[in-house]
Design a protein around this nucleic acid. Structure first.
Lengths: 225, 225
DNA sequence: CCGGTCCTTGACGCAACCCTGACGCGCGCG
DNA sequence: CGCGCGCGTCAGGGTTGCGTCAAGGACCGG
């Protein structure tokens, strides 16, 4: 879950933001001055900071600078000042975006999404699924087993991907055929038999007794961790 | 030097931006419609795009989406519309920032600096990638091998860069073609064969048995350390 | 005007992949 | 008990995809 730190000395604005963000499944912390903001940022490591420039104790730009000394968290500045000098200062100090009050909530949320989205892929969001015998990396399109890479043909990979993406649920033969071979297929269940066998030969410890690539007779197939 | 692509159908705005940017030592390209923008982006690989939403040929949001299919270049949207719906659309399509006309030049420049600054370290996590046989310096655009520089042609470099930037993930042939040759390509897989062979000849210890520039038959290519 | 570099394009051989048909087996049902 | 059905296995043949080489043309600098 994405964690947001909201910093503003106006309780009304904090409340409005907290309610809106929580409703959208963000995890929200808040602070009402610069010192509290820096403390909260250090303690909670938010994924994005919404920062009002007009704080009671510190100059907002100074808060940005202090934050930037050790963190790259996206900072979205909120300010009542329209003067371009303020904006330039804040942005050059390390802010990522600058929104003037009064602001539209949906615009702010969109800017927030943009800021978070940008920061994400740096971490590397590969989806890896592990079983007792092998490992599937959906992002890298790689399969690992016993410390070695397993070579899969395109069709084999598509089939495995469709099963793994289903996340343990049963996938009907029709659906499987459509996903892998295209929408005009649906009855060629022999394809499934052949390629499931090949997958099991490459991935299962005992291909004749599959533990992860399970067939549900008459219905379809299922991937189990 | 930072390369900027300016897209606007109003010559006055383009001229103003070009002059201001050039004065600040940016390298500037420009386009006046969506098609030209996509072409220029593919050909020149800008570090940031300034994009007007009101283009004559294409919907601006569509340009963003097309760009995002193959590129992560920061996009700064310029628009005369203040409606928040437009902003949300553009930002969610993949834009990084949204500025309404008329805009202050210094504010725009500050937002541009912010966008570029953000993008730099994201790519530059490991600017230098080493393998057992050769070294790729993404920042300096140089390849080292056995203590000497390897001379790569522009196309060879683009291809290598696209693979290395993927960080071990498989890159599909379509995507590779689009990133290197531009969005209008996608089926010319023979290009890939020729240039992969040249890269392997220059970089692999045994070009006929590549260890780092791997082909996954029917799917794409992969760079491995 | 000439030489070199780089990109594009075509042809060819070879390996790998996809499809297909045949067979065996277990199971349920008539 | 015989039969049909669904599934797993195997092997062969047509086709595709990949690597390689070489030639033609555009572009640039001398």
């Amino acid at each position: 879950m994405t964690r947001v730190l909201v910093v503003d000395d106006d309780p009304a604005i904090v409340r409005a933001l907290v309610i809106n963000l929580r409703a959208r499944k963000y995890e929200v912390d808040s602070a009402e001055d610069g010192a509290g903001a820096l403390r909260a940022a250090a303690a909670r490591h938010p994924d994005v900071v919404v920062l009002d420039l007009g704080l009671p104790d510190t100059d907002g730009v100074d808060v940005i600078r202090r934050l930037r000394e050790w963190s790259r968290v996206p900072i979205l500045v909120l300010s009542a000042r329209h003067a371009s000098g303020e904006k330039v200062q804040a942005l050059d100090a390390g802010a990522d975006d600058y929104v003037t009050k009064p602001f539209g909530m949906d615009e702010l949320l969109a800017r927030l999404r943009a800021a978070v989205r940008r920061a994400e892929p740096a971490d590397g969001g590969d989806v890896v699924v592990e079983t007792g015998t092998f490992t599937v990396d959906l992002a890298a399109k790689k399969v690992h087993r016993d410390g070695r890479d397993v070579r899969l043909t395109p069709t084999e990979w598509h089939l495995l991907e469709a099963l793994v993406r289903a996340g343990g649920r049963l996938v009907g033969q029709r659906q499987l055929l459509r996903e892998v071979w295209g929408p005009s297929y649906g009855t060629e269940t022999n394809y499934l038999r052949v390629y499931m066998a090949q997958l099991r030969r490459k991935l299962e410890a005992d291909p004749s007794r599959p533990r992860h690539l399970i067939t549900e007779p008459g219905m379809g197939y299922r991937f189990e961790k």
